[in-house]
Structure formats: C-alpha cells, structure tokens
Write a protein that binds this DNA or RNA. Structure first.
Length: 221
DNA sequence: ACCCAGGGTCATA
DNA sequence: TATGACCATGGG
C-alpha cells in the first residue's frame, strides 16, 4: 500500500498544529548548516552543538579556516560529535569542494538536480546529508528522509519500510506540492515529534498528536 | 551496563 | 543489489 498525498499532508498539518513552526535549521549561516549536516550523521544533536561551539570559539566556522587546521586539531575540536577522525576527513572534503566551486553564490546558480549530484560527489556526503544541505542551506524544495521519517511512516503503515530513498522523498515532495517552507517544517516537526513523544511511546494508536490527523477516516482504510 | 543518536563508506557475496 | 563491519561521543 502506498500512502496517499492526503494522509501525508494531514500528518503534516496535525504535527504543525500541535508543535507550531520549528524554524529550522538551528544555525546562523548556510555554511554552518553544511558543517552541522556532516557532524550530525548518526549523532545526537546535543553533541553536535558542542562541536560547533568549539569551532566557533576557534574562529573556524568557515572553509578557509577549517582547511588550515591540522587533522589533529580539527579532530580535537569536533571530538564531542563522535566519529571525529571520519568527520575530520569529511569536513575537509566538503570545504575543498566548497572553495573549488567558488562558494555559496556560485553553487546557488546551479539547478537543484545538478547541485545534488555535485554534493553527492563529495566524500562523506550521502543522500540524506545532501538533501539536508539542499533544503536548509540552499532553500531548495527537497524533502529529507531520515530514520525518524522511515520509522514513523512505517508505524503508520504509509510504507513497507524498504522503499528506496528517492521514492520516499518524491512521495513527500509531491504531497507537499514542492513547497520549500512546508518541507522545511515537516522534516523538523517529525524530528521534534520523535524526540518529544515517540521515543517514550512508540505506539501510534496512543499518540494524541496523531489522533488529530484523523487516521480512522474511511478513506484511509 | 546497555542502547541509541537528525549516516556514510567500504568490503564482500 | 544487498547485507555487515566500522566509525566514537555523550545522555538516558
């Protein structure tokens, strides 16, 4: 069974009514979004905040400064975010690519498909990280599929769970009518809901937020 | 002590 | 194409 657009948009509205706007991504600049997208890979955001604070204090929240740091120094700064040796290489690869491409302004001239392809060519940037950057740094109408989204959609029987990443992404993009702001909020709301509620109670039938989405309507069955 | 967190790469079959 | 090992800190 495939989720209808109506069910997906209803879920979005239900979450929005309950939690309100999330105003993501928690960062001051688009470059900080990109760094955070690498650092948060399979890592709790609270740990990423510590690593970003260290980079800020070292005045190393720009590509040229990061590239000047030794691997050892950079690794020590991002240590709290875990996988620090892996992420050191990924951050440097991203910064090298960023400078080679002429920075944000030049990259922003590319169409979304080309920019995604470019991002995916960077070592350490996978499907989700690329879409994080496309949506939250470049404001492109792209929906981010993360583990929370797959889990929630599976629990709601929107999906079987083994759909390809791009199939799910396009499913949501279609349901939200390619509206960038909606995709921004929806992804953030799913994360918010996962942290606030799902973690302590994974049973969707007991979830007061999802009841507002009226999943017991006939057209959903 | 154990489990997981806003994934991705690489080797292997 | 699809699994599995690996990376590593910090909070519950």
């Amino acid at each position: 069974m495939q989720a209808s657009n109506k069910k997906i948009s209803r879920l979005y509205l239900g979450l929005y009514k309950n939690y309100g706007p999330q105003s993501w991504w928690p960062a001051n600049t688009s470059f900080e979004v990109m760094i955070g997208a690498i650092l948060t890979q399979n890592t709790a955001w609270t740990n990423v905040e510590k690593a970003i604070a260290n980079l800020k204090q070292a005045k190393a929240l720009n590509s040229s400064a990061i590239l000047k740091l030794s691997d050892e120094t950079l690794a020590s700064l991002i240590r709290p975010s875990g996988y620090f040796n892996v992420k050191t290489k990924r951050l440097k690869a991203l910064c090298q690519w960023y400078e080679k491409q002429g920075g944000f302004k030049n990259l922003d001239k590319l169409n979304t498909e080309t920019l995604r392809h470019e991002l995916l060519s960077v070592h350490g940037v996978g499907l989700e990280t690329a879409d994080d950057i496309l949506l939250y740094a470049f404001k492109r109408p792209v929906f981010v599929i993360d583990t929370y989204t797959r889990r929630l959609f599976s629990r709601l029987d929107f999906i079987t769970g083994n759909e390809k990443y791009d199939v799910l992404r396009e499913m949501v993009e279609d349901a939200l009518e390619n509206n960038t702001q909606h995709m921004n909020e929806f992804h953030a709301l799913i994360v918010k809901h996962a942290k606030d509620f799902c973690k302590s109670n994974p049973d969707c039938k007991q979830c007061p937020v999802l009841k507002r989405c009226h999943y017991n309507r006939r057209e959903d069955i």
